[in-house]
């Protein structure tokens, strides 16, 4: 499965950058004095202001806001834009502070709630043994 071929619909922006993973964050790393790092499944969505300002955003910031037209997890963003997870964490926080993204850190009490677990269980149970012909690749 991990054969390196790009997943359909993921639309990667090019080969992984070789040298500058944290250059785009001006050397900042993700966990700072602000406390806990955002979980990898944290959902990120572009705001109308962010999409409106797209033309004025540069490189990684632009790509992140553009990708977040639909809700994405930090992990999906990092994978699709070929950025280190911690780079995405830093940039997403910057863009949130600028009002261009909303960042939804999952509430642990909510994800561990019995009613939520039951919904996941019921949802999984309804999955057939093998795949149907259609796959949601976008």
């Amino acid at each position: 499965m991990a054969d390196g071929s790009p997943p359909p619909g993921a639309d990667p922006v090019g080969p992984a950058p070789a040298v500058r993973p944290f250059l785009v964050t001006a050397g900042r790393v993700a966990d700072t004095a602000s406390g806990r790092t955002m979980p990898v499944e944290t959902q990120v969505v572009a705001t109308a202001a962010g999409l409106g300002a797209l033309a004025g955003l540069s490189f990684e910031q632009h790509d992140i806001v553009a990708a977040c037209r639909r809700p994405q997890s930090l992990a999906e963003l990092a994978a699709r834009l070929r950025l280190h997870l911690n780079v995405v964490r830093v940039l997403a926080e910057d863009l949130r502070a600028a009002g261009q993204l909303t960042v939804h850190v999952p509430d642990v009490a909510a994800t561990h709630d019995a009613s939520v677990l039951r919904r996941v269980i019921d949802g999984l149970r309804s999955i057939p043994d093998s795949r149907g012909v259609l796959r949601d690749t976008d």
Partner: peptide
Amino acid sequence: TSVGSISEIEPLTTEAS
């Protein structure tokens, strides 16, 4: 392989620490 068997997207890979 397990992730790929159940995921609705092809498994993605990202760099993490």
